[in-house]
Amino acid sequence: MTDSPPTIHTPGVLTATADAPAVLRREREEAPPTFEEVYQQHFDFVWRLVRRFGVTEAHGDDVVQDVFLVVHRQLAGFEGRSSLRTWLYGITRRVVADHRKKQRRRRETDIEAVAERSSDRPGPEDRMEQKQAMAFLNRLLDELPDEQREVFVLAELEQLSAPEIVELTGTKLNTVYSRLRLARRSFERALDEARGRGSHSRGDG
């Protein structure tokens, strides 16, 4: 090779001198986080939401996978106008809604029934109890209207504050409050009823 080493241009960083700290500019202007970072930081969140928003275990993997494929595809275009979590939440919600819509349409098919039932089979001992408990919880959540379920899950299970829920869902604060109020009441009632009806024979629903 010949003379000087190749120059590497890193525009975002080099111009960030006068008005803003480099770090800030970097965050604002430069490439969005890598897929790997998003995956590491938010996988658990997406995973839980998918289940709690009513996707059965048999389909959990696929729906989560769908979410991250969309992330994979669209991450480069993520402009940071919302927080990454809000963006990701929006994707998750759409993918889940889409899945459930189609799921409802084909609920009767045999394959579905078999797939879902097989997923209820106990796995290794230690996970079995968890599975049953989660199935129970999901049955309770199933009784809530979707919009109440969403707020309830975010508030009670993800333990987000109301303002955080407002940010994620784009719903007005007062609406969040009223949904949460209704959801809490319904949930308590459903829990009472479910327990009253004989908690000793959970399992085959």
Binding site: H59, D98, S119
Partner: peptide
């Protein structure tokens, strides 16, 4: 291979 888990939904905004 996705086995029994059939993905019903292609990403809605894809």
């Amino acid at each position: 291979e996705p086995s029994e888990a059939v993905p019903e939904a292609p990403p809605s905004d894809s």
